[in-house]
Design a protein around this nucleic acid. Structure first.
Lengths: 97, 97
DNA sequence: GACATATTTGCACAAATTAGCAAATATACG
DNA sequence: CGTATATTTGCTAATTTGTGCAAATATGTC
């Protein structure tokens, strides 16, 4: 797919309050979390959290691992950070002073 | 306003294809551009470009300067780049290796 | 098997978003 | 003043998005 479209989709995925809350939550937790635990950080129905997490997973922001009846989520830290930094560098332009 | 909400709004502003096109266009142009020139990079009506530029301006992504009947747009390079890098650092977490 | 917990899915709905077109506004220029 | 160019604004339509609730699915436990 168009890389620009992919980046736009990533930014859109991050650009929603509750999804960003989920990401922040995963940032600060050293251990991966299951969906119900993550559900606490945004005051919405569990089904909504489930859908938000799916969006984040589809965009590669989070990784999912099945563990019994739970889904354990963790951040794709390096990958997302690199994409954001690449964009930052492009926006900042050649001169870095 | 809630800083998390502000960041979400910034990311949402960047997370739309045509707006991201405008940002990229402003990235690569060394000189600031007026709206009609910027209009070329996304195949939409001028009024749509105008609205997209307003969104970007409201989020502090671009600066506007009136010059005659034109509006000259330029990127807030440092500011946007810093915000993206801050988020990248948070997502990446403590270990930077 | 019966039941509890975790998560997803179907459906409905309200709100937000994007887009286009025509009209309005602002400014330059003859 | 009349006209051309640049940009914004009002209106509308189509689409997407976020949400909640109930039902379905998946898995663990007794």
């Amino acid at each position: 797919m168009d890389p620009q479209q992919e980046l736009a989709d990533l930014l859109k995925a991050l650009g929603e309050y509750n999804r960003l809350s989920l990401v922040y939550r995963l940032c600060t937790c050293s251990a991966p979390q299951n969906a119900m635990c993550l559900c606490d950080c945004c005051s919405v129905d569990a089904s909504v959290t489930s859908r938000h997490l799916k969006v984040l997973a589809d965009e590669g922001v989070v990784e999912v691992e099945k563990k019994g009846r739970e889904r354990i989520y963790s951040l794709n830290r390096k990958d997302v950070a690199n994409k954001l930094r690449t964009l930052a560098a492009q926006i900042e332009g050649p001169q870095a002073n």
